[in-house]
Design a protein around this nucleic acid. Sequence first.
DNA 1: GTCTCAATTGAGATATAGTCTCGATAGTCA
DNA 2: TGACTATCGAGACTATATCTCAATTGAGAC
Lengths: 140, 140
Amino acid sequence: MPQLAAARLAARVGRMTASRRAVAAAVARQRGHFTAEALAAALPNVGRATVYRTLKILTEAGVLCRVLMDDGSLHYRLSGPGHHHHLVCVGCGAIQDFADSVVERVVSQLARAGSFTVEGHWLEVYGRCAGCSTAPSAAR
Amino acid sequence: MPQLAAARLAARVGRMTASRRAVAAAVARQRGHFTAEALAAALPNVGRATVYRTLKILTEAGVLCRVLMDDGSLHYRLSGPGHHHHLVCVGCGAIQDFADSVVERVVSQLARAGSFTVEGHWLEVYGRCAGCSTAPSAAR
DNA sequence: GTCTCAATTGAGATATAGTCTCGATAGTCA
DNA sequence: TGACTATCGAGACTATATCTCAATTGAGAC
Ligand SMILES: [Zn+2]
Ligand SMILES: [Zn+2]
Ligand SMILES: [Zn+2]
Ligand SMILES: [Zn+2]
């Protein structure tokens, strides 16, 4: 998986610098999702600005996707292929991807009804995973 | 319309203070959407913190809704009744509301398929309104 | 191998958005 | 008319992200 991220990165990125390698490696090492700040803190030898810049590149390259959490904070996560959205568990923070053409189609149709041309959209779904739906509000 | 906002506000809010009246009035005076900072700037006699606090109250009361713009900034807008989402024109900034049970249903079903209980969601749709779809990228 | 030069870096400044603190103020109700 | 407490507001503080610009360094040329 580290190799995969690195490979995809190389395919898109300009110069393969030490900093970019370090960020890519740290990203690949993450389990679950993480914030830009946390990643920057974990990479004291890489400038904060560079971490942010590299996360942007990785996101545009499709290696990462961004998740808007329940509390408004922005997290990153290794991205599955293609367009998708997230089911975010507000109990434990677990994230499941889902891709669905129905949502896309409905949105387009609704938009068309309002003489509106869709260029993009943002959808996040919050709730509780199987493990967290029994015991209310576990982790915090 | 000012009266409406003020009335709804009064129905929910604790003390009807001068500051809250001022914020409610300014909100009612807005055409389209606006940011918290812009509103605060337009109310030099009301503390910034109070503007934010009052916007929160108004949002919880259903007077306002929050719109996540294309560029990540958060705007406020007088809210229509009930749950709904927005079609945001990236050309001119116009916003149309839409309420749709199909989206809701699809999301619930998808979630259920993943043993996930939906508690809430966030959806914004970006694109171009009728006026802006002809001439590409008008206003900025 | 090493030279060259633009792409990239990173320390720190700056920007933006929002919350918190806490003494002062002022609604509300008896 | 108080008294009591919610609320206010000035400004500090936090969080997040971008910008500036001199110094560094990949990567291809030779
Ligand atoms: Zn969970
Ligand atoms: Zn989608
Ligand atoms: Zn438009
Ligand atoms: Zn909805």
